[in-house]
Nucleic acid binder design. Structure first.
Lengths: 183, 183
DNA sequence: CTCAAAGTAGACCAATCTGTCTACCTGCAA
DNA sequence: TTGCAGGTAGACAGATTGGTCTACTTTGAG
């Protein structure tokens, strides 16, 4: 992978995530990264292709982060506490790998692309599916029924922190609610 | 209120909600509504002011819808079932007052506006605060502790339905989870 | 050293963006 | 009847959009 290509993806990801996709033009990405326009269009056929690469990069980054966080959990109860405490760190900008918290990049992206069957939306859906699978893999067979509800709670925490700001009780409520579900 | 003004707000709301805000230009709104550009700028100083009016209109509409739905519930347990069944209808496009489901307009809007202290974001936050209050008012004093978790679950259901599509078990899981919390 | 691949700056294009303006028309109230 | 608020169409302005293109330079492997 070319260094310039990677730089373009990283810069695009940061700008798209921080300001929204339609709000950022390719010229902005070029100016910020210091890469020439010709170089961008030799690596990507369009802004949309660059966005797809950025989504994939964010997907890999987030899944790696999530797996590394959950790897410390030794039982189902710990999975929920570790999960929501990791999210709390993210909301508080104490997870440098994830960058400044601006909600979920994939949820934000879905808000900007209405065609549910386009490539972009498919990537977003696949991301959520993978997140769910990572969590499912960490839970014992007894609690597989609760994976969906746990994920819904997680999504709710992310958007609530984004829209309403992180309430001190937010994560506490999530942990209480999720542990009430565990058998 | 002028009829043209209302028409502009309604058209802008529909287009912004269906396609995203930055993706829709004022010319598109004018073409769709059949209103002259001069008229738009005599009622609103900018596209942003029109957006603010659209957010307020959506806020009133959604709160009215929510209150009318919850008015049928006779106890705390019914509040949760009625709430999530109403959401399910929305996801299935069986709530004509809310239009075609495209997630939460306020969450989507936050994804496009990064400055948390701008007027737009403030309206989004106020909307969520009001939603929470409407639900709190319907629950008995015993369950006020669970209002936050219930709202988180609701937000999670909305974004999950938007990004991953409505799973048949989604609402069932929400009802089960929320009723496990009620005392 | 050679040479192709990769990168550079930035002019340029057509389209679109938000917002302004002129000139005119319509309906209604005093 | 007069006058004005509110509406019309659409030209226009200046900036910005995504994307193409030319001509030149840098870089690194064989």
């Amino acid at each position: 992978m070319s260094k310039k290509r990677q730089l373009l993806i990283d810069t695009a990801l940061t700008l798209f995530y921080n300001h929204g996709i339609h709000a950022i033009g390719v010229n902005e990405i070029l100016k910020r990264s210091g890469v020439a326009k010709r170089t961008l269009y030799s690596h990507f056929n369009s802004k949309e292709e660059l966005l797809l690469a950025a989504l994939e990069a964010r997907h890999r980054l987030f899944i790696q982060w999530l797996e590394s966080k959950l790897s410390n959990a030794k039982n189902d109860l710990e999975v929920t506490t570790v999960l929501f405490q990791a999210l709390e760190n993210w909301f508080d900008n104490n997870e440098p790998r994830l960058g400044e918290f601006r909600g979920c990049f994939f949820i934000n992206t879905c808000g900007e692309y209405s065609d549910v069957s386009c490539e972009i939306r498919k990537l977003c859906e696949q991301h959520k599916s993978k997140v769910r699978q990572v969590i499912a893999d960490k839970l014992s067979i007894d609690n597989q029924d609760n994976v969906a509800a746990l994920c819904i709670l997680m999504e709710g925490a992310i958007v609530t922190a984004q829209v309403s700001g992180k309430n001190t009780l937010l994560i506490e409520d999530c942990i209480n609610a999720s542990q009430a579900m565990l058998r």
